[in-house]
Nucleic acid binder design. Structure first.
Lengths: 197, 197
DNA sequence: GTCTATAGTGCGATAGAC
DNA sequence: GTCTATCGCACTATAGAC
């Protein structure tokens, strides 16, 4: 019989998600996952740096879709428009077909502080990458980092709403709404806030 | 609180910081820390849930100083002004005397991805707490969470600048500048296309 | 592919503080 | 006496070393 079967990585991911959902993340050992996927523990750790990482694969593709609209925008595009375009890129990465999968995965992440931390770490990596892309376009600090943080924050909040139980709007629609809300926040009225001297 | 030898917790923190700085975080074992602080490993884990946590104690005091200005503000204070006040609270928690200590700790955190993740997790907790405080004041969603994210993001970026090598302005001054930059980012038309910077 | 160091847990015992 | 910090020991699972 074959010692090596194709799709090991995907099988490990699927098995992990199922076992985590059934028994909880901490109560599921890597040994169990490996056994269910018919590989050794060592194989699991060759595919994923640690137990948490199995839930966060595919990050690079996501980063690319976030960054691409930034890189291909016309030269004189205002920074806020670049943020807006990046958010449209995320919406393309998360079409409605993905919503069910995301809804299944999120409760697992939310149930474990260490998984939340990893999720935040991934978002922070994304922030750094967008900051780099913006600086490459000539956006200067601290505006570039601030814009990058804004983009990722709006994405994150929008994503959370996107997978909320009663939500059926597209990620793009939600992101646009959140970005408008941010504008309203910092400019509460036409005359603005009074002297923060 | 300590009956046997006072200051066990503080001793563990100081010893940890020193050993982490000298040898690196991963290369320092809890056994070493415990030995240097003249307690057992078990005592270390009694005070800190895990090895990383020893670098993040005192979070509650910080959260309190962040939230207090929000809670005590006049009833009709605009949300953005609450954000501004919260940022002033952080500046009070990080006076210039703390800067040297923060500068010593940050490179340790930055050197280890797992410590960065923990730091982000702490900031996320802070975000949740501010969001609660804002909702208690009647700020409605999604504005409350958005404002909370904004406050924490601006704090984080400002803090990073505050401990930068050549920086000598107060945290409050930096935070004010960053908040203004955010306003300029999302309302480019009022200041011209490229913002102020 | 096997072995092992180390993080982290559970629980009972001990000993000072009150 | 109660309370709580500390210890000691057995134990598991992760993650990296060999």
């Amino acid at each position: 019989m074959a010692r090596w079967q194709p799709g090991t990585r995907e099988r490990l991911q699927a098995v992990s998600l199922r076992l985590f959902a059934e028994q909880g993340f901490e109560r599921t050992t890597v040994a169990e996952i490996a056994a269910a996927a018919e590989v050794t523990e060592r194989t699991f750790f060759r595919h994923f740096a640690d137990k948490r990482e199995v839930l966060f694969a595919g990050q690079e593709d996501f980063v690319a879709m976030f960054l691409d609209p930034v890189r291909t925008a016309p030269a004189d595009t205002p920074t806020i428009e670049l943020v807006s375009r990046a958010l449209e890129g995320t919406a393309a990465f998360f079409p409605d077909e993905r919503r069910a999968w995301s809804r299944r995965r999120q409760p697992i992440i939310d149930s474990e502080p260490s998984l939340r931390e990893r999720e935040l770490g991934k978002l922070a990596t994304l922030t750094v990458r967008i900051g780099e892309a913006l600086r490459e376009r000539g956006v200067e600090e601290p505006g570039a980092t601030l814009a990058a943080e804004t983009a990722v924050t709006v994405f994150h909040l929008s994503f959370q709403q996107w997978i909320a139980p009663d939500e059926d709007r597209s990620l793009q629609a939600i992101a646009r709404e959140r970005l408008d809300a941010l504008t309203a926040l910092v400019t509460p009225s036409q005359n603005g806030r009074t002297g923060r001297s």
